[in-house]
Computed example of a mutant assay.
Amino acid sequence: MINRRGFMKLVGGGFTSFATLGGYALAVEPLGRLSIARYQMTPPGWTPGLKLRLVALADLHACEPWMSAERIVSICKRANSLRGDVTLLLGDYASGMNFVTRRVPASEWSTALSTLKAPLGVHAVMGNHDWWEDRTAQKNGGGDTFAHRALTRVGIEVHSNRAIRLEKDGFSFWLAGLEDQLALRPGKIWKRRRMIGLDDLGGTLAQVTDKAPVILLAHEPDIFPDVPSRVSLTLSGHTHGGQVRLAGYSPVVPSRFGDRYAYGHIVEHDRNLIVSGGLGCSIAPIRFGVPPEIVVVDLG
């Protein structure tokens, strides 16, 4: 039978462990770690001889103290050192969180992102928070957000339901980017009863005019069941890996599919999806079991 002294030791030890884990989830993993998630594959139908390295960054959520402009610059330097042929930005540059000491303006985070370099360029899509934090874009029900304009101003190509053909070593491939699937929020102020996406998968893929492989950028992974096998690889962010991931499972995921597309490399019916765990935090500044990451994909 446990005595009072033993009980107090147990309670004290439990409190200390809880405080330690809480401190790690609040301060160490979100701020002090940066991992590299590496994937290597040759998707079905990939062009023989085409070797391509993708470096992808997702979900920065620029704000202080969690994701300052200085930290974004340091992440970009690390991304550049990975020597990607093309660098991809998967959306959610705006904060999306109230637990901040300062919101980093678009002019600052876009200038930080302008330090990214790649032989085939830096290419971006928007995320839901880039739309949600722009009241004018919400009112207009479309158009460019401040994030679109900020990235374009620093020379980063933004893909809004657009596909372009790129070439490496004489081999071509297509890069297609969808507009956000949760762009327009419901509410009386906007006179909308439900969330409205501005993505156009069919129209985007209709711009592909030959048989070269297609890489699709889609902020939310929920589009994946509708992506045809014509697409070699879909890259997404949005989920943050659930921000808390235990034994390969994320209990809370912002997806109608739950944990199905929470994180990592998913293969369904010979189609490939990679979901980044992202870099910043949304809603709450907590990460546990899914540290901030840069994604590197070697194709071919």
Score class of each variant (00 low, 15 high):
M1Q: 14
I2T: 15
N3K: 12
R5P: 10
G6L: 14
F7K: 14
M8N: 12
M8Y: 14
K9Q: 14
G12N: 07
T20V: 15
G23K: 10
L26T: 06
A27L: 15
A27Q: 12
V28A: 10
P30S: 04
L34C: 05
S35T: 14
R38G: 04
R38M: 09
Q40H: 15
T47V: 14
G49Q: 13
A56C: 13
H61M: 05
M67Q: 11
M67C: 02
A69N: 07
V73I: 14
C76F: 03
L82A: 07
L82K: 04
R83V: 13
G84P: 04
L88Q: 04
G91F: 00
Y93P: 01
G96D: 01
G96W: 01
R103F: 11
R103S: 08
P105K: 06
P105T: 05
S107L: 03
E108N: 00
L113Q: 05
L116I: 12
K117V: 14
K117M: 12
A118L: 09
P119L: 13
L120R: 11
G121R: 08
G121Q: 08
A124M: 08
V125T: 07
M126C: 01
H129R: 01
H129Y: 10
W131H: 10
E133A: 08
D134R: 00
R135E: 13
R135A: 12
N140F: 03
N140I: 01
G141Q: 04
T145A: 02
A147F: 05
H148F: 12
H148R: 06
R149T: 14
R149G: 00
R153Q: 14
V154H: 12
A163H: 02
L166T: 12
E167Y: 11
E167M: 15
F173D: 13
A176M: 08
A176E: 06
A176I: 06
G177V: 07
G177N: 11
Q181M: 08
L182K: 11
A183L: 00
A183V: 02
G187A: 08
G187T: 08
G187P: 05
W190R: 04
I196A: 06
G203M: 10
G203I: 07
A206L: 11
Q207Y: 06
T209K: 15
I215P: 04
L216E: 08
H219L: 07
E220M: 08
D222T: 04
D222C: 08
V227C: 07
S232Y: 11
S232E: 12
T234P: 06
L235F: 08
G237C: 01
H238M: 03
T239N: 00
T239G: 04
G241N: 03
G241A: 00
G242R: 02
Q243M: 03
V244L: 02
L246F: 11
A247R: 14
P251R: 07
P251D: 05
P251I: 06
V252P: 03
P254N: 02
R256F: 07
G258L: 09
G258Y: 04
R260G: 05
A262S: 14
Y263R: 09
G264Q: 00
E268F: 09
E268C: 09
H269M: 12
D270N: 15
R271D: 05
L273S: 05
S282T: 06
S282K: 01
A284N: 02
V290N: 01
V290C: 11
P291S: 07
P292D: 02
I294W: 00
V296I: 10
V297C: 09
V297Q: 09
D298V: 11
L299K: 13
L299N: 13
